[in-house]
Computed example of a mutant assay.
Amino acid sequence: MTRRKAHPPSTYSMIDVLLASQTEPMPAAKRVLQLTRMWQGLASIERGQAPTIDDWRICSDAVNLMETLICEMKVCQDSSGLLDDATAALASACRRHRDSKTIRLDASGIQAVRAVLEDYAELLEQLPARTVIQAHRLTEQRIREILAGRKRPKDVEVMDL
């Protein structure tokens, strides 16, 4: 008999989706908390003495959330290709980490990830809370699928940090 790996619990439940506002953005305190963590993660990768895997993950989460909002939910567009640039930059930072044990982004990677975070921050202020929570749930579901080996052609897996 083989044991199944338990996946981490979802950040939001279906009840959270149903209770979230269909018209108002997420409460300011939740937006500030989420964005602060993301900006701190990027700052650590840019200038920190020893950026952590968690810093990288929180930036990756922001990029993954934007991908869900753009590709799955189609609530916005990426006409400039910044999403692909940010994804490539974070994958490169992961490879760099494996080689040198330091997580860093190059200059163009910093610009791409920073731009995606700025766009995500703008969306958080405009989108209804329900849409944001649905994006979280869809993103977590997609990550679980990737970890289970059900990848899509555009998926980039760098989970073995």
Rank of each mutant, 00 (worst) to 15 (best):
T2R: 09
R3Y: 10
K5H: 09
A6F: 14
Y12R: 09
S13G: 08
I15A: 13
D16W: 10
S21Y: 00
T23S: 10
E24N: 02
E24Q: 04
P25N: 04
M26Y: 01
M26K: 05
P27H: 08
K30R: 14
K30S: 11
K30L: 13
K30T: 12
L35K: 07
R37P: 06
M38K: 12
L42K: 03
A43C: 01
Q49R: 12
T52V: 00
I53P: 00
I58N: 02
C59E: 09
C59I: 07
S60K: 04
V63Q: 07
C71T: 09
M73C: 01
V75M: 06
C76T: 15
D78I: 05
L82G: 02
L83H: 11
C94F: 02
R96P: 02
R98V: 03
K101H: 10
I103T: 11
R104G: 03
D106A: 05
A107F: 00
A107Y: 00
I110H: 03
Q111A: 15
Q111P: 08
V116Y: 05
V116E: 06
E118V: 11
D119Y: 07
E125G: 14
E125T: 08
L127G: 06
R130V: 05
T131S: 05
V132M: 10
I133A: 05
I133G: 01
Q134R: 14
E140Y: 09
E145T: 02
L147K: 12
G149K: 14
R150A: 10
R152W: 04
M159V: 10
